[in-house]
Write a protein that binds this DNA or RNA. Structure first.
Length: 700
DNA sequence: TTTTGAAGTCTCTCC
DNA sequence: GACTTCAAAA
């Protein structure tokens, strides 16, 4: 990834592998204490930009130097990207010795262990993984089956049901309590909801399906199993040291897993920053990190406070922002970096002016020598970058969007995958249902009947062929039978096989796509990409599991264009930006109701989480930070009108003092003198120059 | 009875 | 723009 040399603090250089690491010279005292900690539990409380990753990497190096075999070290991170990056950095330190270190996400690791140990523990080894959308679809089937849904209008929708279910699994809070707290309007359905959940669980088992939560749940069950089975001990004995990144974003289930993994030894290192806990919506609890010293008696605690990333003015602003938060490990970040200008707080008249400002400023910084890839535009939610993307495209500025799993969530992509999945797991009810509904002449009833018939024939390969469809669906049924048979006919593992399979599916599916959806061109292009990605995988099982667990994290990961070498601007949600840093960061839509989102406003804890999320976003910046918000927001909600908006409540008067204010004028006025055809963009730039005397005068 | 098209309702973050 | 609900068409 980006390993370019930078002018400031010690970062490991891409030198040839070496044998001994000079911990004293390359780490500060606290970092060194953490990295060279011996056996036993260790908590590293690491503020933003304090070299958390670096410390973890050096700890891996230290362990390997101490003679711990790489394969007996497990490094759990939040994203695959983070794991890869850390392992690559470890390799630069200690050379190929580090190759065998196991690194990955909790879910990815669970997947690996379940494929290996599941069969012994009575779990099927050939399960299919349901992603969120799949799980919701299955929940819908259970919802419909329970009968309650039709009679009562107010019964929760599939997404809500799944949310409640997932929350129950990940937090271990009883369903009733979740309803009372979060969904009081559904309390009356507690019993029915319980039935739906029971049906959902049963369906998953019958159909050999595993959702994200199950991956963790089964892992926990394995490591907690009684000694009689000994599987727990065997899994626990796989690793001598376990290191966990972003510990503040783990939930109680994950804490249980770690406890179980440490039943043979107590060599658990966790790194985290309570101020950056932003996954409560997924069941993460800040208590894990706050209570670690109590849960692991005698744990060493090391706090990293020296920031190597940002300039002092940026730190001043972010320290102020987070000082408003409630319970936390107190730490005040400081830096030895000098100079730097105060971050900007930019008031735009409306959203299009906000967009133009950001693009203009990016071009300016680019002209000053900052590569595009060293700049990022951050926002609260994926859709908030829509206008910016259009503008960037229009101006030929290459960008890469992170976060938002849009590609795999797209209906047409899921359609194609459904074909592969029924081949993989003939009992995959969700996929059968999906693809049957695609076929002309087949609707809900016929689809249900077909699935029913297949269930009665024990899901044999020939079962679907034997099913007799109603006349109007005969043609579609025939075509589908033929396709599935031809796909089953030639197994084997030649190169690019999965891509070829998708090609076959498309021979049938592309016409359906053209019929059903509008905007056909981009969708077909998506399928091209899917096919290209698939060709890179050795077999179907690996491909499908990988898609569920390691979805392409950005548009460029999807295969075409923009690989890591290119100089490409990054657009990212605040969540996906976690753990990264850029020379210049723009945080857009800092409007109350957008960031924090209005949905969070009713709940104090959610507001706190939004605050921490904004802290995460702003602390990504090294030298330049600009927070922007438009005064007038066009709301298409009720009867087209502009409404006057307020700056985010997190930027209160005190916090704002750490910023320099920039107020962009109304586009029309200063632009008046200009020849027609030139937009006010030019004015904004001219104005910035006038105001700051050649903006961007921060000492590098 | 089943499918399909059209109008109407919200819209987050991610493994 | 995607999903749900409802009514018309086959």
């Amino acid at each position: 990834m980006s390993s370019d040399p930078r002018p400031y603090p010690p970062r490991e250089r891409a030198v040839a592998p070496r044998r001994t690491v000079d911990f004293a010279a390359e780490l500060n005292d606290a970092q060194r204490a953490a990295a060279t900690h011996g056996d036993g539990p260790l908590l590293i409380v690491a503020g933003a930009g304090t070299g958390k990753t670096r410390t973890l990497v050096y700890r891996v190096a230290h362990l390997i130097e101490q003679g711990v075999p790489a394969a007996r070290i497990l490094l759990l991170t939040f994203t695959r990207r983070a794991a890869q990056e850390m392992l690559a950095r470890a390799e630069r330190l200690v050379g190929s010795h580090s190759r065998g270190v196991h690194g990955g996400t909790f879910h990815g690791t669970a997947h690996r262990l379940l494929r290996r140990f599941g069969p012994e523990a009575g779990l099927p080894g050939d399960f299919t993984i349901l992603d969120q959308g799949d799980a919701e679809d299955l929940m819908q089937l259970s919802r419909a089956g329970a009968g309650v849904a039709d009679k009562t209008k107010r019964f929760p929708k599939k997404a809500t049901l799944h949310h409640i279910y997932s929350r129950h699994v990940n937090t271990e809070i009883p369903v009733g309590a979740i309803l009372r707290e979060e969904f009081p309007r559904f309390i009356e359905f507690e019993e029915e909801i319980g039935k739906v959940f029971a049906d959902y669980t049963r369906r998953k088992q019958d159909r050999n399906l595993v959702d994200y939560d199950d991956l963790l749940l089964y892992w926990a069950m394995l490591v907690e199993s009684e000694p009689a089975r000994a599987i727990g001990d065997r899994i626990g004995a796989l690793y001598d040291h376990i290191l966990v990144d972003e510990y503040q974003d783990t939930n109680v289930l994950q804490a249980r897993i770690l406890k179980g993994m440490c039943r043979v030894h107590r060599n658990l290192t966790v790194v985290g920053d309570d101020a950056q806990s932003v996954y409560a919506f997924r069941g993460a609890t800040i208590r894990n990190i706050l209570d670690f010293p109590r849960d692991y008696h005698g744990a060493a605690v090391v706090t990293l406070e020296q920031n190597y990333r940002s300039t002092q003015p940026i730190l001043d602003a972010t320290n102020l922002l987070i000082s408003r938060a409630e319970e936390r490990y107190s730490k005040e970040l400081y830096t030895r970096r000098t100079g730097g200008e105060r971050p900007w707080l930019v008031t735009a008249q409306d959203d299009s002016q906000q967009t133009r400002f950001v693009v203009d400023r990016i071009l300016e910084l680019h002209e000053e020598g900052i590569p595009l890839r060293e700049m990022a535009v951050l926002f609260r939610a994926g859709y908030m970058s829509a206008e910016l993307e259009i503008e960037l495209t229009a101006r030929n500025i290459p960008f890469d969007k992170w976060g938002g799993l849009k590609f795999l969530e797209a209906a047409h992509v899921k359609d194609v995958l459904a074909f592969l999945r029924v081949l993989e797991n003939p009992r995959d009810e969700v996929s059968w249902y999906r693809l049957l509904l695609l076929m002309p002449g087949i609707g809900e009833t016929t689809a249900r009947n077909a699935i029913q018939a297949m269930a009665e024939h024990a899901w044999g390969h020939e079962a679907f062929g034997r099913f007799t469809p109603p006349p109007r669906a005969r043609e579609a049924h025939g075509a589908l039978v033929q396709l599935l048979e031809s796909l089953r006919a030639n197994p084997g593992a030649e190169e690019g096989r999965v891509g070829i399979e998708i090609g076959r599916v498309r021979a049938l599916y592309d016409d359906i796509l053209k019929e059903r959806y509008d905007r056909v061109e981009p969708r077909l292009a998506d399928l091209e990409r899917l096919q290209a990605i698939a060709s890179g995988y050795p077999d179907r099982t690996t491909f499908l599991s990988a898609l569920a667990l390691e979805p392409p994290a950005s548009t460029s990961d999807l295969g075409f264009g923009g690989d890591a070498e290119d100089d490409v601007l990054v657009l990212s949600t605040a969540h996906s930006a976690k753990g990264r840093e850029w020379d210049a960061v723009f945080l857009i839509w800092a409007v109350d109701g957008w960031f924090p989102m209005s949905r969070a406003l009713g709940d104090e804890e959610q507001i706190e989480e939004e605050r921490r999320l904004m802290y995460v976003a702003m602390t990504r910046a090294r030298n330049h930070l600009a927070v922007t918000f438009p005064l007038n927001v066009y709301s298409s909600r009720r009867g087209a009108d502009y409404s006057f908006s307020q700056v985010s409540r997190f930027l209160d008067r005190g916090v704002r003092k750490a910023f320099q204010r920039v107020v962009l004028e109304t586009p029309g006025e200063p632009a008046a003198a200009e020849p027609p055809g030139i937009t006010s963009t030019v004015d904004v730039r001219a104005m910035l120059r006038a105001r700051f005397g050649g903006a961007g005068d921060a000492p590098g």
